[in-house]
Structures are given as C-alpha cells and as structure tokens.
Design a binder for these strands. Structure first.
Lengths: 215, 215
DNA sequence: CACCTCCTACTCGTAGACGAGTATACGTAT
DNA sequence: ATACGTATACTCGTCTACGAGTAGGAGGTG
C-alpha cells in the first residue's frame, strides 16, 4: 500500500535491521554496516545517520537503552529497537519486497534526451559505459564467488540481484550498440543530418514539432 | 568524471532539454513534460521545479527572456537557455550516458534483510511483486507498440530500456521463486527453523554471529 | 618526546526537496 | 446572475539530507 513512512530514508531500514540484532550506538551501526559491505551500495552519510536515528526515536521505533561514558571517548548513546520498531521493520520490508517502486533511473533520463549528442558520440559513450559495466559485472561476480563458500545463500541473493540487473543492462546496451553499428537502427541517417545541419529531413517529424503550437 | 553539478536534480536536465527547444515559462515546461509522458517516470514536483529553475538561472545556465502579463493570469516569467546552459546540458548527458551511476535500488535493500520474514511470507510477497511487474511489463509493451508506428525509434529507446529492465527483474524473481518452490534453494529448512524457533541450526552460521565481537 | 595521523563519536549549518496553499480567470451547470 | 469546479501560475514554509567541522584519545615514528 506504499503508505508514506514516518522515516523514509533507506538508512532507517539498515538501522532497524542492525538494532533488531542487538542494541548499539550509531557509530557502531555504521561500523557493522561497513563491515558487511552494505555501504557499497548505500554509502553511509553521517548527517543522515544521526538524523534518521533521532527520527526513529521520535516515532518510538527505537529507544535509548543506556548512555555510556567509556572513560575516554565522548558519551555514547546506545539504542535498542522497540516492539513498534520490529513491527515497522517487518512491515517496511514487506512493502519493499512486494511493491515494485520505481526510483527514476538516471540512465533512463539520459536516454530520453540523448539525441542532443550526435550518433557518433552517443555510440562512443555507450561503448564506454559498456566497458565500465562489464568490469563491474566481472568484479561482482568474483566477490560473489568468493563469498559463496562461506555464507549461506540467503545472504547472497541481494548481490545476485545486483549482478543480474547489471548483466541485463549490459546486454541491452550491447544489442542497442549492435543495431547502431550495423546500421539496422532506423533514422540513423536522419539523426546525423539533423545533428550536423540542425535541420530535420522531411520524412521524419520529431514529437517536438508535433507538439508545438503555432501561436 | 561525475563531478558534482551545480544543479544536481534530474528535473534540471528536463528543464534544460525543454529550453533547448524554445523559451518557456516554468508552468509550460511542466505541461510539455506531461504531454510527452515524461512525468510517468519522473513525477513533477512543483516546489522542486521552481527551485531548480531559480538555481539554473543563478548559475547562468538559463536567463529570463521576458516577463509577460497576459492580461489575465499572474505574471509569467519566460526563460531561455544560454550558451553555457547548452554546454552544461550536453556535458551532463555525456556523463549520465557514459558512467553507470548506481542509485541504491530499494528492492535490493529489501533483499538484504528479507530473512526477517519467514520463507513462506517472502515467497508470497515475491509472487505478488512478480504479478505487478508482469502487469507493468505488459502495459508498457502495449503502449510502446502503439507509439512504434508514430514516433521515430530514437525517441523510444528510453521506453525500451525501461521495459527491458523490468523484464530482467521479472525473470530474476521468477528463477528465484522457482528455486524456492522446488526446494533447490539451500538452507531453506534452516531458514524456516530459525524463523519459527528463533534458533539457528548448528550447521549454519550467519554473518551476524561471525561478525560479532565478544566485548 | 614532540609530532602527526588515524580512529572514535558525534554536532551543526546549510542547501535542497517537496507539499500545501494562494490567487485569478474561465467555463458551465443551476 | 450566481455558484462551483477546474486550469493557470506560482509562493512559502517545513522537513530532510548531507558535508564539513570538532575534539579527545590512541598509537606509531623520527
């Protein structure tokens, strides 16, 4: 039902997950997340972490369990999850799992305006992206293999998903590039002409011109 | 090189794209975007639109071309793109195309903590997601087909990409569900036991337990 | 033993994102 | 004629996200 959550930031989910295990102070949460490599896909912003923790407390999802002065170090505030917090946590995960929530992908935004670059440059950039993507895929596949022996599968599906999506994107780009290089992509000539001369060949009408009112 | 842009919001890209065509006032930009269906993947937030326009002006990417009082209506400020704006626009598109910039996908965050739900519920939710995804895919495929006759291909790659990614996600979920239902997913029994009793069977160690310091 | 850097554990100020509100005119049903 | 919804075109205030700063101690080095 995707109802807007009190605490919306994804870091909040990570905090709840960490506290579901055992009480911790914020800095420790960050350390735990980093240790498990979660920060690769979701870098921990300090400001956000403390804001999120404060808000989770405000809404009763977590409470202060104790405030320790460790002799040295500044005072650390240790938080624990509440019953409401556990409910919210599970509920949140449920929503995220069941509802495909599209966050606007930047690449898609770029593709919606890629005509401003000429076909040659677009192809060059796509090739560059593909190279980087392939490297990422190889890298992730290796680390995944490395973990595969140590960790139960259930902790790996996340990485498997990330890998699968990257592979899918790479495959898509590959096929687009293929069309562009073999020339089987229609309107390539028109695109090039428009880009070089600034004028559209008569056989192609862009949606821009269609949409334009003559006022 | 992904240098941090003066105006980072993706709506800024849309504004530059609109103004690259012809001068407009903000409300008209929103109308144009909506007309072209761009708002589906990137809903237009009013506050953000005006903030972004103000910032683009601040950094010299756009300037006020005229301020019209149309007899009726409040005064409309019409903006036009500057030379610097065109440069920034093209440069931005270049970066977005060439550099795979991972925005943290919420689904992945959910998968990283999905063990808090039992296997049965997780499967149910994944099935639900799959149904919704399939519907989306079918829907998008239909509209894409509809446009295919009217619009040059170059304006459709964006939608094609969106479709491909959704299909890939659906396929991935399908195969995961398959493993889970046939029971070929390892540790399924351990997961269920842990979920129901709260205790881990001895043969499985979670990374939690591994990572825990005994202080 | 002075210095330097890294680690711990935050705080604070600011820029950005956004929703809800506002004000005017136009059409249209009553 | 009047009331009511709807499109236009923003403004304003709040809440969030974040980066940069801080400050003490530990631990290593020349």
């Amino acid at each position: 039902m995707v109802r807007r959550r009190k605490v919306n930031n994804m870091l909040g989910l990570a905090v709840l997950a960490a506290l579901a295990e055992r009480p911790m102070h914020p800095y420790e949460m960050a350390a735990v997340l980093r240790e498990r490599g979660k920060d690769e896909d979701m870098p921990i912003k300090w400001g956000t972490l403390y804001t999120v923790v404060r808000n989770l407390e405000k809404y009763g999802f977590i409470t202060v369990s104790e405030s320790v002065r460790d002799g040295s170090h500044p005072e650390r505030t240790i938080y624990q999850i509440t019953r409401e917090g556990r409910v919210e946590f599970a509920d949140w995960v449920r929503d995220l799992l069941a509802e495909p929530q599209r966050e606007q992908p930047k690449f898609m935004a770029a593709l919606s305006v890629w005509q401003v670059l000429g076909p040659e440059e677009a192809m060059r950039l796509l090739r560059q992206r593909l190279t980087l993507l392939d490297a990422e895929v190889a890298d992730r596949r290796t680390t995944l293999m490395g973990y595969a022996g140590d960790l139960p599968r259930i902790f790996l599906v996340e990485s498997e998903y990330g890998l699968a999506m990257r592979e899918a994107e790479a495959a898509w780009i590959r096929s687009l590039l293929d069309e562009l290089t073999t020339g089987s992509f229609p309107d390539l000539g028109a695109w090039r002409e428009w880009y070089e001369t600034g004028r559209l060949p008569s056989e192609v009408r862009s949606p821009t011109e269609r949409g334009e009112q003559s006022d």
